[in-house]
């Protein structure tokens, strides 16, 4: 139990490092929009979805209505279906009882950190997720209260953190074989191309790019594996 908690928190470190500056930016943005600290806190603690929160504040600023913002949020966050599906298929039997709680904390980052694990324990994944969650909330509060005194330079440079983490998690897979590199490149290129389709709602380019790439991978690499066995 203790080792699972420690492992979860240790693995959460790079995400914490990445979340805090982004959350600081969010907290400051909420304040500049004229909202209260309580509202900033509720956005981060109740919704807990970075990109959607930024989108919401910008939408309030340009005068969109609540239903419009909520629909945009649904489209933007629908990608979590993919991540939840993947995590759900790898939870331990015992952990399944906690899935309503684990589901609340699903993010791109907590998915990325646990993507290579099987038979995931709830203690491990919840420790990791709650550490991420806490840093997101703390960052939001710091940003609201003290955001304007934190040098923009540092916050800006910290923007690379989560991408560096994705790289660090992907590279070991690439070392194992070319398929990881081929599929990651394919998905990246498709994501970029689909993003440029004007009528595709925000967030869907990601979902389509991932599904198309995974289907292509399933088809291409299946044959390769058959050859290996022969």
């Amino acid at each position: 139990m203790k080792t699972h908690i420690r492992l979860g928190i240790k693995e959460a470190m790079p995400v914490i490092l990445g979340y805090i500056p982004v959350a600081i930016t969010f907290g400051l943005l909420v304040k500049l929009e004229g909202l209260t600290l309580l509202q900033a806190f509720l956005f981060s603690s109740v919704v807990f979805a970075g990109a959607a929160q930024f989108m919401a504040i910008n939408s309030i600023n340009i005068g969109l209505s609540n239903p419009q913002i909520i629909i945009a949020t649904l489209l933007l966050n629908f990608r979590h279906v993919l991540m939840s599906t993947s995590i759900s298929s790898r939870l331990s039997r015992e952990a399944r009882r906690f899935s309503p709680l684990i589901a609340f904390f699903v993010t791109d980052e907590s998915y990325a950190l646990t993507s290579h694990r099987d038979n995931i324990s709830h203690v491990y994944i919840l420790s990791l997720q709650i550490a991420n969650y806490a840093s997101w909330i703390i960052g939001t509060i710091i940003g609201f209260i003290a955001g304007q005194w934190i040098p923009e330079f540092i916050v800006s440079c910290m923007g690379i953190t989560l991408y560096a983490m994705f790289a660090a998690l992907l590279v070991p897979e690439i070392k194992k074989g070319h398929r990881a590199l081929i599929m990651a490149l394919m998905a990246g290129v498709l994501n970029y191309l689909f993003m440029r389709i004007p009528f595709l709602a925000q967030g869907w380019h990601f979902i389509i790019a991932v599904i198309v790439t995974a289907i292509i991978g399933t088809v291409i690499f299946k044959e390769e594996e058959v050859e290996h066995f022969e």
């Binding site: 993919l82 991540m83 993947s86 998915y111 990325a112 993507s115 290579h116 994705f166 998690l169 992907l170 897979e173 398929r179 990881a180 599929m183 990651a184 490149l185 394919m186 998905a187 990246g188 498709l190 994501n191 990601f206 790019a209 991932v210 790439t213 995974a214 991978g217 399933t218 690499f221």
Partner: peptide, 9 residues
């Protein structure tokens, strides 16, 4: 296969 694609995107 999904994780590799997800990382790329």
């Amino acid at each position: 296969f999904m994780p590799y694609a997800m990382f790329g995107a």
